[in-house]
Amino acid sequence: MGSNQSTPKISAQDRAILDMKNQRDKLRQYQKRITVITDREKSIAKECLARGNKEKALLALRQKKYQESLLAKTDSQLEQLEKLTSSVEFALVQKDVLYGLKQGTQVLQQIHREMGGLEAVEKLMGESEEARAYQQEISEALAGQMSNEDEDEVEDELERLEQETVVLPKAPSQGLGHEVVHDAADGIVDDHDLPDVPTSIAGHDPERLQKQRERAKARKIALNA
């Protein structure tokens, strides 16, 4: 019965536990036997007393007492045995828990190794921080700066349209691609109508306008260069 393919599932510990449990069973059986004996001695004592044989009754009771002391002893032994058995079983559980912890730690370490250690993480975090900062710069360059410059340019153009209608044609050629150069003339005509809207803003602050014009000129020069 015990020698088919699933035998290895029974470990030496299992056998040791079985031995202890068998021992416990034997003690239990022994206790049963003693209980039967004490009961019998008691009935013997009663019988003897009924027959007036005090001596024999006493003997039987003494016998009973002795058996009872044995019973108490086996009780404590049984307790010891059960304690030991549960300790062993608990230790086995602990072993399993430890094994589980070990396994988990290994997996965790493996994952950490795959992540390349703390340095790599720090490096990566630094890099991503840099990249983010860079992205921020780009965004600013694209959004923030553009809006400033756009504003300036729009205002510039307004200014120029207002005052330097003859010099203007050159301006769009910078802002737009070269293929648009041809349309420069048209642009002038179209733009000619525009001024109405911004005049109020342009007229608001002559000093600012002046500055912007200067700035625009400087930029134009720089771009031309």
């Binding site: 015990g2 599932k9 299992d14 536990i17 079985l18 068998n22």
Partner: peptide, 15 residues
Amino acid sequence: GKAQVFGGEGQEGVK
């Protein structure tokens, strides 16, 4: 394969 009986005659255990 759901259980294993082992141990000597009259003292068998089962897991």
